[in-house]
Design a protein around this nucleic acid. Structure first.
Lengths: 216, 216
DNA sequence: ATAAAAAAGGGGATATTTCCCCTTGTCACA
DNA sequence: TGTGACAAGGGGAAATATCCCCTTTTTTAT
């Protein structure tokens, strides 16, 4: 017989301490084994591509990782391996990212302060029923479908501009930094003020920080 | 015999999944046992106060926790139980907080993405030699002693002004809000730009957020 | 194929921010 | 009793930011 009866779980998490100890916890549940661990989305995807027929019952995917983050990895899986089941793990309960992970195919979303009991339940549930959502997440999903989500989608150049606007540079300096005319920058600014319903550069800075476009 | 020979470790971390699995990892090292786990500084301190003679060889203290955070807990330990050895654990490498944890008595500071090997080494080192610092942390310490940390102390009115400056109000509006002449506000602004070594209101906003004068 | 957006840029005006140098009164303190 | 620090306020100018209305070119969608 080629395979044993234990469910095969993969962990993708850059926190080595966490992923290694999580493996021990999972092993202690009895019915599961951790067959591989990866420290970011990149090396995980490399593995998936080179082992197309590997048996995988569940993937535990950290959201915050260097190199290739959880969301990007999730998007890749959605395109190339929608058959794989993923539970997203994260320390934060940012609605934006939770919704995105789920709309990109995550079957569950757990905060890292989840109790081991709930964690075990979630693993069992996803492997058996195909999904597991906590009240927190369900609440968000309901919220989302009920709210006219005029979602702001910022283009790459706008993001770059915003990052620069969150410094002490003048618009003229930003323009030369981005190799654009000051007037173009002025256009970006006006369009953003409009989109984000703000009136000043200060408002833009506050928005950027609140929405984690820039970090302080 | 009342005690066994294993080193007794306490874990203080709100991420149950992390702390429970960390316990398994520590157990796997062989020479250690985790005698208690706490989900925040408050319940940890309650325990310490009620069990003054408990044998404790090492405390693993998470920095980011609800109710009572790692730094506050560290300060309490400094005052009441400086004999206890602590390794701070955190996901971020913010210099500010690292320095504060160490100046308040932490014997080590590990990022949560530390490898289990280094982690084991750190535990052994702190219990035996009394301290363990990674290169990252040593670098910061050296940095700190070499830089004259002129600490800024802000007056109440300045704080109020800063809070207002972190909104979309103009200085004129701020002045009327604070019942002061716009020229006085201009004076506050200039004096702050000077003190904080910034050149624009954007810089002031970034400073305010970084130093938690305003929250986003 | 063509109309509608979007991206890049411009003119010109007004409001706000930033800067430098100044006056007046108050309060501590040596 | 003077002196120096400091809070409050001012004049005036230059630099920036904000606003509104415009053209050209490229993309996108139907």
């Amino acid at each position: 017989m080629k395979t044993n009866s234990k469910n095969k779980i993969l962990i993708v998490d850059d926190h080595l301490l966490f992923s290694q100890s999580l493996e021990l916890l999972i092993k202690s549940f009895g019915d599961y084994e951790v067959t591989e661990r990866f420290e970011n989305g990149k090396v995980f995807i490399d593995y998936i591509e080179e082992n197309k027929s590997a048996e995988i019952d569940l993937i535990l995917l950290d959201v915050n990782m260097p190199v290739l983050d959880g969301l990007s990895t999730m998007k890749w899986l959605k395109d190339y391996r929608p058959d794989l089941k993923v539970i997203a793990l994260s320390v934060n309960d940012d609605e934006e990212i939770i919704i995105k992970m789920i709309t990109n195919g995550a079957k569950g979303y757990l905060l890292k302060d989840t109790s081991p009991e709930i964690f075990k339940e979630a693993i069992e549930c996803v492997i058996e029923k195909g999904f597991y959502f906590t009240e927190l997440v369900s609440g968000m999903l309901i919220n989302k479908v009920n709210s006219s989500d005029k979602k702001i989608n910022l283009k790459e150049k706008e993001i770059v501009f915003i990052k620069h606007a969150c410094t002490e540079m003048t618009y003229k300096e930003i323009a030369s930094e981005m190799c654009l005319s000051p007037k173009t920058i002025d256009g970006y600014r006006e369009s953003l003020f409009d989109k984000l319903e703000i009136k000043t550069r200060i408002g833009l800075v506050l928005y950027a920080i609140k929405h984690k476009i820039v970090f302080v």
